[in-house]
């Protein structure tokens, strides 16, 4: 057993454990933290496969952005954990059935008769850059789906703004730009009045 294999089994064990804990953890914050651990070890596995760009993106995007957002939401929502766990035992048979079914299907895919998928990954030459390869593929062979994905993001932006942006009239909000342009005449009114009350 060489060193790489050892690292693989080490990471894979942590990944499986973390994945299991995501589902079984009692507290949603713990579950989210275990998910972070799962992503992190997953990124480690990708590094083993020399897919360093994907590994770094996974850490940056999923752990750095998505999971932090997730944690914020979980912490802010003040979830009633006991109530959420109510359905656990009644849903367990169905969930177990679906889980087992998926496990069977995955093993079927991996053991297709007369064909092995995912043959042993072999190491690349020294000058190989995964990032460069990925970039080359995305901007050449896969440029059409790449552009389409960009259009989908554009649609998401348009839709999000169209559905949520409201211009309310009559709200009492402050406009700093307008505030600093204030002149003396806007604020101070000089009223000429006699020094003493008349006709007393």
């Amino acid at each position: 057993m060489n060193f790489e294999l050892l690292v693989f089994y080490f990471l894979a064990t942590i990944l499986l454990f973390a994945g299991l804990r995501v589902v079984t953890a009692r507290h949603p914050v713990h579950a989210a933290l275990y998910l972070v651990l799962a992503f992190f070890t997953g990124a480690g596995l990708w590094l083993l496969l020399e897919a360093e760009f994907l590994a770094i993106t996974l850490v940056l995007v999923y752990i750095g952005a998505v999971m932090v957002l997730f944690l914020f939401v979980v912490m802010m929502m003040n979830l009633n954990i006991e109530k959420m766990r109510d359905g656990f035992w009644s849903n367990l048979p169905l969930a177990a059935f679906v889980g087992i079914l998926m496990a069977i299907e995955m093993s079927l895919v991996l053991t297709v008769a007369g064909r092995t998928i995912g043959s042993d990954p072999h190491a690349h030459a020294a000058g190989y850059s995964n990032t460069k390869e990925l970039g080359r593929l995305i901007y050449t062979d896969y440029v059409y789906p790449f552009e389409l994905a960009a259009v989908i993001l554009l649609v998401a932006i348009v839709a999000a703004i169209a559905i949520t942006l409201r211009r309310r009239t009559g709200t009492k909000h402050q406009d700093p730009a307008w505030q600093v342009r204030v002149k003396r005449d806007d604020r101070v009114r000089l009223v000429s009045m006699p020094a003493e009350k008349e006709g007393d």
Binding site: Y142, P145, L148, I152, V155, V158, A159, A162, I163
Partner: peptide
């Protein structure tokens, strides 16, 4: 290509979801 089929479908579906929700 399955990838373009799927992306086209998502582009269509996302636009349709938001069109339905436009009358907020």
């Amino acid at each position: 290509h399955f990838l373009t089929l799927y992306l086209g479908l998502e582009l269509l579906s996302l636009s349709l979801y938001s069109l339905v929700a436009l009358q907020r």
